[in-house]
C-alpha cells in the first residue's frame, strides 16, 4: 500500500517538474480574474457602503480567498480528470496489471496531484498579497491547508468521473456546466447573504462555499466569514474523505476496455 502510494505520488510530482512552466502557467487564468475583474471592481466598491457589504474590507481582500479557492478547485479537478489521458496513452494498464494495492496507487496519485495544485494555489496567493491590502500573512499556511482538503476532494471526484468516461469528448461540457456556476455560487465573488433565496440555497450545498469561507477565516478574519471555522473544515474533511474513498473504490474495480 505505502509503496504504491509513494510511487504514484512521486510520478505526479515528476510529471509536474517536467512540465512545471506549463502547469504553473495555468494560474494565468485566475490571475486575470484577480487583476482585471478584482482591480477593476475595487475602484467601484471603494466606498463605505460597499465595504460594509463585503464584511468591512476592500473588495480585493474579499475576493482574494475566493480566487485562491477557485484556483485550487479548477486545477485539482483538471488534474483528477487527467486520469483519462493515462487511459488513452495506456499507462493505466501498467498500473492495473501491477501486484500493488490499487487503493494505494490512486490515493498516491490524488495526494501527488494535490501537492501540485497547492503549488499553483501558493503562487496565486503570493501574487495576491501586494494587491490586497489587508490579507494576513499568517493565514498563508493554514489557507494552503484548506486548499489541500479541497484539492483532495476534487482530484478524487475528477478521478471517479474520468474512470467512467470513454474520452475527453463530453468533458468540455462537464467543465462548463460545473466550474463557472460553482464558482459564482460559492460566495467567492459576491457575498452569499445578498443572493436571491434560490441561489443562496444552492450556495449552501456547494462544497466550494466552505473552502472559500475557510480560506477567508485564515486570510482575512472571522468577521468576514459566514460559517464557523469548525463547520468549514468539517464539511471539507467529510467531503474529501467521501470523494477520495469513492475514487479508491472505483479504481479498485476498474478494468480496461
Amino acid at each position: 500500500m505505502m509503496e504504491a502510494l509513494t510511487t504514484m505520488a512521486y510520478r505526479q510530482l515528476k510529471r509536474f517538474i517536467r512540465a512545471r512552466s506549463r502547469v504553473l502557467g495555468m494560474v494565468i487564468n485566475p490571475l486575470i480574474w484577480l487583476v482585471f475583474f478584482g482591480l477593476g471592481w475595487s475602484r467601484v466598491f471603494d466606498n463605505p457602503m460597499a465595504k460594509m457589504i463585503f464584511g468591512g474590507v476592500d473588495y480585493l481582500t474579499f475576493l482574494a480567498p475566493g480566487i485562491f479557492a477557485m484556483t485550487v478547485f479548477n486545477m485539482s479537478f483538471i488534474a483528477g480528470v487527467s486520469v483519462i489521458w493515462d487511459k488513452q496513452f495506456g499507462f493505466l494498464k501498467e498500473v492495473l496489471v501491477a501486484p500493488a494495492s490499487r487503493k494505494g496507487s490512486i490515493l498516491g496519485r490524488i495526494i501527488g496531484d494535490s501537492l501540485v495544485t497547492l503549488a499553483q494555489g501558493a503562487i496565486i496567493l503570493v501574487l495576491t498579497y501586494p494587491l490586497a491590502e489587508s490579507l494576513k500573512l499568517s493565514g498563508f499556511l493554514p489557507a494552503l491547508g484548506v486548499g489541500f482538503l479541497l484539492s483532495m476532494a476534487f482530484s478524487g471526484f475528477g478521478v471517479s468521473l474520468a474512470l467512467k468516461m470513454e474520452s475527453m469528448e463530453g468533458f468540455q461540457m462537464v467543465m462548463m456546466v460545473l466550474m463557472l456556476p460553482l464558482t459564482f455560487l460559492s460566495g467567492a465573488i459576491y457575498p452569499i447573504d445578498t443572493m436571491p433565496g434560490w441561489m443562496k440555497a444552492l450556495a449552501y450545498i456547494n462544497p466550494l462555499t466552505y473552502a472559500v469561507d475557510g480560506a477567508r477565516h485564515f486570510l482575512v478574519g472571522a468577521s468576514v466569514a459566514k460559517f464557523s471555522l469548525g463547520v468549514d473544515l468539517g464539511v471539507l474533511t467529510v467531503l474529501a474523505a467521501l470523494l477520495v474513498g469513492l475514487a479508491m473504490t472505483e479504481f479498485e474495480r476498474a478494468t480496461i476496455g
Binding site: Y10, R11, K14, A19, G90, F91, K93, E94, P99
Partner: peptide, 23 residues
C-alpha cells in the same frame, strides 16, 4: 501490451524506476 503503455512525459529511467517500485 499491444498498445503503448509508457508514461511518455517521463524518461526511460523514471518509467523503469516506477515499475520497479510498484513491484
Amino acid at each position: 501490451f499491444q498498445d503503448p503503455s509508457l508514461d511518455r512525459e517521463l524518461t526511460a529511467w523514471e518509467n523503469m524506476y516506477i515499475h520497479g517500485r510498484i513491484y
